[in-house]
Amino acid sequence: MADKSVTTVEQILAELESLGSEKVRTLNIRNGASENQFGVKLGDIRALANRIKTNHELALALWDTHNLDAQLLALLIIKPKLLSADEVDRMVRSISTAQVADWLSSYVIKDHPAKEALRRSWMQTDHPWAARAGWSLTAGRVTREPEGIDIPGLLDRIESEMPKAAPEVQWTMNTTLAQIGIRFPAYRERALAIGEKLGIYRDYPVSKGCTSPFAPIWINEMVKRESKVTS
């Protein structure tokens, strides 16, 4: 067990390596991660972050290692508001795996004061990870802050762009499509039709008890659940 006062990148990398699992590492690589990782369980990364607490400078140094586990840890101890919009943009464009992309969105981007300006910029880029982040933020706007969002325009873009989009981008475009269908009854029929027409994630494997990411199934299931809650 490493000392609780772990504060240097070298010490942290050594501890992460000691926590690594070949099984987790193999699974991560199968899911698209690079080999620059130790295969640490996410629960162990969270426990280490809880021990270190917030440490912005250390987080930046960990991020620069490009090690998967170190970058995930960095996202838990970083101070998002100390990052400039350009720094966030560079971080987004440097990632290479969905796990890091999703944690970056959840723990940094969604709390950043420049997130709307970044969203608008990323919605116009061809860079796959930046576009993924842009669509992720757009899905959040559709769900929680839809004022000013052009829903018909989003549906037009999804219908025309999603079939040829990079897999990284398809995932958050699909989330936006599903959230439109769930949150906007007036556009539900069109969202369902687009999902059926495109067929993306129709055969996606899901564990028992989980909802398929195939938009028509996802939309109908969530609408049914919400109607039960309100009835």
Rank of each mutant, 00 (worst) to 15 (best):
P113G: 00
N220V: 00
D203M: 09
T172L: 02
S121E: 13
I194A: 10
A178N: 12
W122T: 00
W129V: 01
I158C: 05
A166T: 00
T138L: 06
I151V: 08
A98G: 04
K208V: 10
Q99Y: 08
K110L: 12
I182N: 05
A133M: 14
R188P: 10
L104C: 12
R132F: 06
P163T: 13
K110G: 04
E196P: 12
M123H: 06
E168T: 02
E116C: 03
R141M: 07
N220F: 05
E221Q: 12
V223S: 06
S96T: 15
S207G: 14
Q170W: 09
V206Q: 07
A178G: 14
R141S: 07
W218C: 05
P146A: 00
P152F: 06
M123D: 03
W171N: 01
D102L: 14
R202H: 02
P128A: 00
P216T: 02
F214L: 08
P205M: 09
N174P: 08
L192Y: 12
L198A: 12
R119Y: 04
L155I: 01
S207I: 08
I158E: 09
V223E: 07
I182V: 12
A131C: 03
L177M: 07
E145Q: 11
Y107S: 10
I194R: 09
F184G: 09
